[in-house]
Write a protein that binds this DNA or RNA. Structure first.
Lengths: 152, 152
DNA sequence: GTGAGTGCAAACGATTTGCACGGTG
DNA sequence: CACCGTGCAAATCGTTTGCACTCAC
C-alpha cells in the first residue's frame, strides 16, 4: 500500500478514535478498493489473495470496530449474511430477488413525512431516529434474462 | 387443541395448498397463540413446554413452508435471528435500539410515491415490487428508563 | 398405496470468544 | 511500558440437510 495512503487512512482511524494498526489499515483499504457491499470473508480472501496474511477472526473484529466508529456501514438486507461498505452518504438499498445483488438507492435526508409513523397511533415508541428501507425487485440483468424466457 | 380450531386451521392449511399435518397445526396454532414476532426456537420451546414433542428441525421446516404458503410472515430486522409472525395485513417494523423488541407499524398499501426510487436515476433496476422498512429508536419502556437515568 | 412430511442427528456457515503474544501510542 | 489489538483455534448459535420411516390424502 502507498505510503501516502497509509498516512491518510491512519489519520482517518485516529480521528475516529481507533489505533492505526496493520489489519485495520488493510481492511479499510480493501473495503475502499473493493467498493460496494462486501461480506467479511470477501474482504478476508481479497487480502490473503494479495499476500497479506491475517486471521479471519481479525477481519470480523476489525469490521465490527470500523462499524462502531462509523468508518464503515453495516448493511443487512435479510440474506443471512452481513455486508459492509465504506461509510459515506446515507442511503437505502435495493436487493434483486433473483440474483441477490445489492444496489444503493439515493434518498432524502431523514425520514420522509409520509413515512414517519403517527406518534399517537404508536404509544409504544418513545423516539425514532432512523428508517432503513430495503427495496426488492428485479435488477436489470435478471429482468432482461426473464424477458427473454431464459428464466421462469 | 380444540377440535373446531383443528378443523379451522386444517382448512387454512389446505386452502394454502399444504397438507394438514400434526406439526404444521401445532406450529400454526403456537404462532397465533403467542402472537407478535417469534423466533423458531421460541415456537419450539413453547410447544415442547406444552408436552408436544416435535423436532427443532421440523419447526424450522414448517415455518419455511408456512412462509412460502404465505400463512406466516418472515421478519428480518437485522438482528441475526429470523422472526416469524402470522400473516395478516402488510406492515413495517420498529426495533428498539436498547432492548431489541419489535413492534408493528401500520403503513399505507404499496410504496409511497415519495419513496419510490426514480427509475431514470437507477438504470440497474428493472422492476420493483416491495419496500421493507425498519425503523429504529427507543421503545417507550427503554425511553422511560433512560429518562430516569437508569441507563446511560 | 404413494408421495409428502417428519424425526433425528449430523453437517453447515457465519460469527464470536478466550487466552497468550506483539505492536502502537 | 502499558494496554489495545491480534492471531489462533475452538466454541457457539441459528439453520439446513440426508436418510429412513410414517401418515395424510
Amino acid at each position: 500500500m502507498d505510503v501516502w495512503r497509509t498516512v491518510e487512512l491512519s489519520a482517518r482511524l485516529r480521528t475516529a478514535g481507533l489505533r492505526a494498526t496493520g489489519p485495520r489499515l488493510a481492511v479499510l483499504d480493501a473495503l475502499i478498493r473493493l467498493g460496494g457491499h462486501r461480506r467479511a470473508d470477501e474482504v478476508h480472501s481479497h487480502l490473503t489473495g494479495q499476500g497479506r496474511d491475517l486471521a479471519r477472526a481479525s477481519v470480523y473484529n476489525v469490521l465490527r470496530d470500523l462499524t462502531a466508529a462509523e468508518l464503515a456501514l453495516l448493511v443487512d438486507v435479510g440474506s443471512g449474511v452481513t455486508l459492509y461498505e465504506v461509510g459515506g452518504t446515507f442511503h437505502h438499498h435495493f436487493v434483486c430477488r433473483s440474483c441477490g445483488s445489492v444496489q444503493d438507492i439515493a434518498c432524502a435526508v431523514g425520514t420522509p413525512p409520509c413515512l414517519r409513523p403517527d406518534a399517537d397511533a404508536h404509544p409504544g415508541i418513545a423516539s425514532l431516529d432512523e428508517a432503513r428501507i430495503v427495496f426488492r425487485g428485479l435488477c436489470s440483468g435478471c429482468g432482461a434474462l426473464r424477458g427473454s424466457a431464459l428464466l421462469p
